[in-house]
Design a protein around this nucleic acid. Structure first.
Length: 552
RNA sequence: GCCCUCGUAGCUCAGCUGGACAGAGCACCGGACUUCUAAUCCGAUGGUCGCAGGUUCGAAUCCUGCCGAGGGCGCCA
């Protein structure tokens, strides 16, 4: 039975997080040399270059001015003090460059990481509580129910869902919401177009075209309300497509319901009461310029009809009224111009503009084998999202869209991601997970029990490949926190590729079972394989990509 | 004209909210399969981080101005 060096006061083994250990040691050292620790906290980071140690701090650089000493001198004093302190896992401390303090650690710190991963598992490892339960409503997709989801909706759909997953894991209470614009002229045009097609008549003025109109028209039963039928047909289509991507909305918010409830009139009344509304030129205006918008905006047109803006304001008012602390809207780049007026509107209603966050996804250019796939808007020539899923699969669809920051315009070649080759990173990562499973199956067949990570001797682990896997695992909690704060799930995609690369390297160089491998090494490596499996499953789970038992 | 996003290797993109000599994948070149799937691994080649200033001990990262790409600027939704 190996010694367990964790606190005995807690029934759950909770290895000290290395960051806390080092920060605490640095704090002590600063105090010892008579320098006030930085009010913002001490910064610890992993140097990009391994020659600079395992962990590094720039605290001497940051505090040199306040301490009235030059950075290297201060760093030297810190190092001298740290050398005398008995800091767990620390093998050496050095000054480097302009005044960095670099820590060189024993591999034991990575053994703690492995134990932590195993103790916490897929559900618990890198589950953060940095959000304090803040209630966030993520609204995304919200495509008009006048046709199937198309390629243009894909990025927002996948991003919104993965963002929600990241937020949840970081301690937010999260709701996913889809706003259904189920009233208005667009719905009528849509229904008329289907009815016309069913009757063999030409597409009406400002109607919809496209293969789906003709197809759905053939399904239109006689003697039904064409609008209601078309709406239901479309919703079924949209939900089915989202279902294939494993996207599930907790809330489908109907604009009709909102109208019926009188929320729109109530919103206008609120705005009037707030004194931010002007009547001019027979129209009703929101004085948006009072809140940083470029111009004032019409709420009710001179013909007495509300603009789209008023119900939209009512909708956001409703979201807050339902108790959400923070609203995140995922919008396409073609709507970014509406950000200032929406923020102005919620301010006019008395909310903090920061309580509405709008994430804008840049456009995606689609190619097939290097040639752009052209889409014509009105003509109905577009690629349905369902077609993309048919072509490349749900996992590749999600992974590919999540590979890049939403801020960058993305180019996706469908031919490339449809190919199940090395060009396609999703298979690379899934393969890593399947490999881990494969090794575990072999272990079971060979009669190796899965080791208890809390007690197994990990000291046989020391191979460069083994340590790379553990290092990657150690980075996940920090990385997830950044991904959450920056609303950047693509960082998870980048990370999981790194972990997969480390694991493939390990797999290649470190045989686990048989072939003259000593049983102690097999046991330690099996623990590592399971930890890697957990990390891969967490990463893939956040991306909404399946973690397969085997590749076929 | 104004606003938003972007401009990093031949291509597609990272770069952890300023840090130590700029990274990955693909492509190209050269290696590794009696092994838990070679759908893998290793090595080599490849970049004035659009340009010019500024802030800083330190800038791909922050600020300003240009240049270029995409998107947006309705009493349309």
């Amino acid at each position: 039975m190996a010694a367990v060096q964790f606190s005995s006061t807690s029934p759950v083994s909770e290895p000290p997080v290395i960051r806390d250990v080092l920060v605490s040691a640095l704090t002590d050292a600063l105090v010892a040399v008579g320098v006030e620790p930085p009010p913002s906290g001490i910064d610890i980071e992993r140097p990009a270059n391994r020659d600079h140690g395992d962990w590094s701090s720039n605290v001497a650089l940051a505090r040199a001015k306040a301490a009235g000493r030059n950075p290297r001198e201060l760093a030297g004093e810190l190092v001298a003090h740290l050398a005398g302190a008995d800091v767990p896992h620390v093998a050496g401390v050095e000054i480097a460059g302009p005044g960095f303090v670099n820590f060189r650690l024993y591999d034991t710190w990575l053994y703690d990481v492995l134990r932590q991963v195993e103790a916490d598992g897929v559900d618990g490892y890198a589950r953060l509580e940095i959000a304090g339960g803040q209630r966030v409503l993520v609204e995304f997709v919200s495509a008009n129910p006048t046709g199937p989801l198309h390629a243009g909706h894909a990025r927002g759909a996948v991003y919104g869902d993965s963002l929600a997953r990241v937020l949840e894991r970081c301690g937010h209470e999260v709701g996913r919401e889809y706003l259904l614009n189920d009233r208005g002229m667009q719905m009528q045009h849509f229904a008329d177009s289907i009815a016309a097609a069913a009757a063999g008549e030409p597409t009406p003025e400002s109607g919809y075209q496209g293969a789906y109109i003709d197809e759905w028209a053939t399904e239109l039963p006689p003697d039904v309300d064409s609008l209601e039928w078309a709406y239901a047909r479309c919703r079924t289509e949209i939900e089915a497509t989202l279902e294939r991507l494993d996207i599930h909305f907790e809330y489908w918010h109907s604009e009709r319901d909102m109208v019926a409830s009188g929320a729109i009139e109530a919103t206008l009344a609120d705005l009037r009461a707030a004194g931010v509304v002007d009547d001019a030129d027979d129209a009703v205006w929101l004085r948006a310029t009072d809140f940083g918008d470029d111009k004032d905006r019409v709420l009710v047109k001179s013909d007495g009809e509300p603009t789209y803006l008023l119900p939209d304001i009512a909708y956001h008012r409703d979201k807050f009224a339902r108790g959400w602390d923070l609203l995140i809207n995922v919008w396409g780049a073609d709507h970014h111009g509406y950000v200032p007026r929406m923020k102005a509107a919620i301010q006019a209603l008395g909310h903090d503009p920061d309580d509405l966050e709008i994430q804008v996804t840049q456009l995606v250019r689609l190619e097939r084998g290097g040639t752009e796939v052209k889409i014509g808007k009105r003509s109905g020539e577009f690629i349905e999202l369902a077609e993309i899923i048919d072509e490349v699969g749900a996992d590749a669809t999600r992974f590919t869209y999540l590979l890049q920051s939403i801020d960058s315009q993305q180019t996706i070649d469908l031919a490339v991601i449809a190919s199940q080759t090395m060009d396609n990173p999703v298979f690379y990562v899934q393969m890593a997970h399947a490999r881990a499973r494969s090794i575990q199956r072999k272990a079971a067949e060979t009669g190796f029990a899965s080791p208890d990570a809390a007690t197994v001797d990990l000291s046989p682990l020391g191979h460069r490949r083994e340590l790379e896997v553990l290092r990657a695992l150690s980075e996940l909690p920090d990385l997830l926190g950044v991904a959450c704060r920056e609303r950047a799930p693509h960082k998870v995609a980048t990370w999981v590729r790194q972990l997969a690369a480390a694991f493939h390297g390990f797999h290649h160089d470190c045989y686990v079972i048989g072939d003259g491998i000593p049983p102690e090494l097999t046991a330690a490596r099996l623990a590592l394989v399971d930890a890697a499996r957990i990390g891969l499953a967490i990463g893939l789970g956040l991306l909404g990509v399946s973690a397969p038992e085997e590749m076929r």
